[in-house]
Design a protein around this nucleic acid. Structure first.
Lengths: 359, 359
DNA sequence: CGATTCGATCGAATCGATTCGATCCGCGCT
DNA sequence: AGCGCGGATCGAATCGATTCGATCGAATCG
């Protein structure tokens, strides 16, 4: 191999710049940070020297070390990104968060935490300097990262999980929200309801679940919504959980609920997410059932699914706004506020996917 | 406000640990990095001291400053995340990239670069320490970040853009790839082709475009694919570009091409992306045209669109693999390799969305 | 048994900035 | 003329580690 004999030009430092401008490094520092009074002429000399030397600005590392501020916020996402972000709602939250953090001059460090080995994320984050960590998507109730970050003194913010007194939350009342959708169906006259739940614990397959499964759930948000459904649903209403948050899984779940003798078939299906509801609508179509005439379907989130002919009746939870709220909470916590929980309001949006039951 | 009189416990440092264990900080450092020979007994004492003091490990900032290695790779995404990642292909690339970087112990710093004010990203990145920067989605041909990062000596890798000798690329031969799809249609007997292009420049509206627009395009990938189409398409074939990479925009474009007198209507539409092709399929459906019997449609990427009844005939470009390739190139460049371009192979996958023309 | 070598440990320099307190100078005020 | 003040600048300490070279004792070798 060609021995690269170009004595590595060594990038210019603040000291080089100061020297060239004939000032002390302290003065040069003031020029770039703008924190102290510097004569205009001096400042110009320093800037000229910097330009000559190709000095782009103080080294972020050294600067952060001294100031004790990094400007980076870890964003923890459970599972592979292509799963987590397949849900448009997750994307919306992420986007709102990004906008809000931008405003505060902070950048997102994206950390994908493996579902099977969540502890691996600890090693990954241990070598990264961060001011705060956000759990933007409701994940498991407990998370090995919490202890690590807590002892490091890193501020944590989440949206329902992980559960810990150290984590501040932007909290949706999942239970009441889901009840809203269920009640709407009862009001329309439905009496046979089905439910499609998000994953109640990691690594499950799509299939029926019981009240007991809900009690022992690992994902607080899914459990909360399931409780909301149980609050209003007649005893024995069929419930199915999906293995992943996708239209395909929703369709599979929908078939499980709808492909049964008509006497047992629910006249309405309450889904914990719009993507799942979209799947159920597709399942209904493939079974020759018209929505909403023969089956009503509700979702959760209120995301945009232009390819679905129908506008879903759904529990509206503005994702971008939720991201903003998370970002704002990060900012407040970095300013010294303690870990508090803040409510995030949801509401029912009636679309064209619900109607009175047939007959 | 309650004056917080808890004299800030000051987090333990390596020196504190060393002192408590009765060793020098150099030895303590060796214990944590495992870089030198340390007697087992000594190591245990140090670890015990660390546990007592709640010392989680060396401060990442100080460590990085000394070692000149941060472990962070900036990932630049043009436009709001909810737009960029609405395309499943983009997600797949991101995911592959994340996996590959993880393997190398590096973390992704996600930077959303505003389309209208791309220069704002410079300020954002200027305060962040990064080892490398990746442009995983083919963006505009030029980017203000390139100059900034180049003078900082940050390694850059992209997938087709920005165009600069400093940036190494994982390169899809867009033109040849798109030609594959076009040729397939010609072979089937089609003679009237239409084309749906991705954005040829930032901030455009969905609408017709000409050969000249292709020449002056700002997005190399869209331009390349358009050239591939032009290579094989009969003179005067209608072309439309979309304003955003979504199914909705594709549908709009599809209507523009297909909602015309039958004599002028293309019998096949070549699309630059699967999401756009999906939109065209929907447009055809809403116009009462059967796919593929009355209209053939081809896509690009080969992503999973379970909700679309059809399997698209498409130019297969495995996204996760491309992400891996990008990550691998980052690693090699950080090991000293220069900025080279590496080809990324694509192939035609024949699905159920193409057939011989009617009649 | 003296010379070597090796393993374990330490001291000090270094990475590249920020910031506190001190110094210097010129100006206005009395 | 003397005093005080504030703007501009500088020197030195500091942030929290890593690493190079030196030291020292014990084990190995001839």
């Amino acid at each position: 191999m060609p021995s690269q004999r170009q004595a590595e030009p060594r990038r210019a430092t603040l000291r080089d710049v100061a020297e060239r401008a004939g000032v002390s490094t302290s003065t040069a520092s003031l020029v770039f940070s703008g924190k102290g009074p510097v004569a205009a002429a001096t400042a110009d000399r320093v800037r000229a020297a910097a330009a000559d030397l190709g000095f782009t600005g103080p080294d972020p590392l050294a600067s952060s070390l001294r100031q004790g501020r990094v400007g980076t916020v870890a964003v923890i996402v459970e599972g592979p990104l292509r799963h987590a972000f397949r849900d448009p709602f997750a994307l919306a939250v992420l986007d709102g968060l990004a906008e809000e953090l931008d405003l505060a001059g902070r950048t997102m460090l994206l950390v994908a935490q493996p579902v099977e080995h969540p502890e691996q994320a600890v090693a990954q984050l241990a070598t990264q300097a961060v001011d705060a960590a956000v759990f933007p998507l409701c994940g498991t109730a407990t998370n090995p990262l919490v202890e690590h970050l807590a002892t490091r003194g890193v501020v944590m913010v989440g949206s329902g999980a992980p559960l810990s007194p150290e984590v501040g939350h932007v909290l949706t009342d999942e239970r009441a929200g889901q009840r809203l959708a269920g009640q709407h169906l009862l009001d329309l006259g439905h009496r046979r309801l089905g439910h499609v739940s998000m994953m109640l614990r990691p690594a499950v397959a799509t299939g029926p679940v019981t009240r007991a499964d809900v009690e022992h759930a690992d994902y607080p948000d899914a459990a909360g919504r399931a409780r909301g459904f149980l609050d209003i649903a007649p005893e024995g209403s069929p419930m199915v959980q999906v293995g992943e948050l996708t239209v395909g899984a929703g369709e599979e779940a929908g078939r499980l609920l709808l492909d049964v003798p008509v006497a047992r078939r629910p006249t309405a299906v309450v889904c914990q997410a719009d993507v799942l509801a979209a799947g159920v609508v597709r399942a209904a179509a493939s079974l020759g059932l018209r929505v909403p005439d023969e089956v009503s379907v509700t979702g959760f989130d209120g995301v945009d699914l232009p390819w679905l002919g129908t506008t879903l009746t759904t529990v509206l939870q503005p994702g971008v706004a939720k991201g903003h709220a998370l970002g704002a909470m990060v900012r407040r916590r970095l300013e010294g506020e303690g870990p508090v929980d803040e409510p995030f309001a949801v509401s029912l949006r009636v679309g064209t996917s619900t109607a009175p039951p047939p007959g």
